Simulated assay, not measured.
Amino acid sequence: MSLNRQPGAEPAPGGKGAVPGDSRGALRVMNFEMPGGRRFERHEHSAHQLAWAAAGTLTVDIGAHSWVLPPTLALWIPAGTPHTTSATRPALMRSVYLLPRHSPVRRPGPTVVAVGPLLRELITHLADTPLEPGPRARAEALLPDLLRPVEVTTIEVPMPRDERALRVAEALVAHPADPRSLDEWGRLVGASARTLARLFSAETGLSFGRWRTRARLRAGLEHMAVNRPLTAVAHRVGYTSPSSFVAAFRHETGRTPGAYFSAGQGQGGGD
């Protein structure tokens, strides 16, 4: 298996910069300790990747799409797919890499899969346990059967391109509870409220209000992944009550925060 170095991380199987491969089996599991703010910039691998946070939350961006992944969910990233991976708060990423020629999985695009107890323990077993070739081959053969796709609506927060609107967007991503109106933001960045509203609509496809709602909800996911109480999460991201946060979350994703986080729990079967 060839290896490719990600910036600031251990080598991960991939394309350019390859070195002699790993002889342990058809797949490899690697651990990445990710302090808050760590970001692996846009890169790709010649191997398929299953990106999973054993602790904390990962955000994976592919094109215009963004997935926030608690430990109950992982993302299948086909070989050759450019992506970025980041963690706003400390996380442990365990990535599974499979060479396409050895992989029975043929999903052509990014796919969210449930991480139930059996898949979680199997990945940990392959990552942490020294195994002889026979037991390792049997464990590896089981893993693809446990990759069960789940329907998860991603919370997309597209960023505007205009410098003035982008300054507002970046400030709200950093501090989602900031209550300032478009008029107040406009005075700060040198644009009228009408101009900012037009820029958000034209460049993100969302009204400013809906864009801010999504930014708050995605920030809320990251807080919930570290088991903060729902009331505290709601207040941290700008909601006056947990019920208003849950209502907004359900409106955007079609499910409650609890259902989002439990999507993979109790599931260990195949497709």
Rank of each mutant, 00 (worst) to 15 (best):
E132C: 00
P158G: 11
P257R: 05
V152L: 08
A137M: 04
V115L: 06
L166H: 09
V152H: 02
F40L: 14
F200M: 02
P70H: 04
L188T: 14
P242N: 06
A169Y: 03
G8T: 00
G63W: 13
L166G: 02
P82Y: 04
R250H: 15
G254C: 08
D271Y: 08
T57F: 06
T153N: 08
A177I: 01
A225T: 11
D178N: 15
H251L: 10
L221E: 06
E121Y: 12
N4L: 03
N31Q: 11
T57K: 07
R180M: 13
A53E: 06
L92C: 06
P160M: 11
R187W: 03
I155C: 06
H223I: 01
E33V: 09
G190L: 13
H65L: 10
S244D: 08
G134D: 00
P35C: 10
F32M: 05
V157I: 15
P149D: 06
L69D: 01
A137T: 03
T213F: 00
G14P: 07
V105L: 07
F261K: 02
T84P: 01
H43E: 09
E121H: 15
W52L: 10
L98Q: 12
I77W: 02
M93D: 06
S201R: 12
I123E: 01
G56Q: 05
T81N: 07
R94M: 15
S243Q: 14
L172Q: 08
D183N: 14
E121F: 12
H251Y: 07
Q265K: 12
R210E: 13
R236G: 01
R212S: 07
L69I: 03
M30C: 08
P108K: 10
A12N: 13
W52H: 11
Q49V: 09
G205Y: 00
A193V: 10
V189N: 05
E132N: 00
R42F: 03
S23L: 12
V150R: 09
G238M: 01
W185N: 00
V150W: 03
G37Q: 08
F249A: 10
R167W: 13
F40K: 06
R161N: 13
T72L: 04
A141L: 14
R39I: 11
P78K: 04
S262P: 01
S262M: 05
T84F: 04
R228N: 13
A219K: 09
V226I: 13
L142H: 10
P82H: 08
G266F: 09
L172H: 07
Y260E: 07
H48Q: 05
T111R: 14
A18W: 12
V157F: 07
P110Y: 12
L206F: 05
G36Y: 07
I155M: 05
S181C: 11
W211I: 01
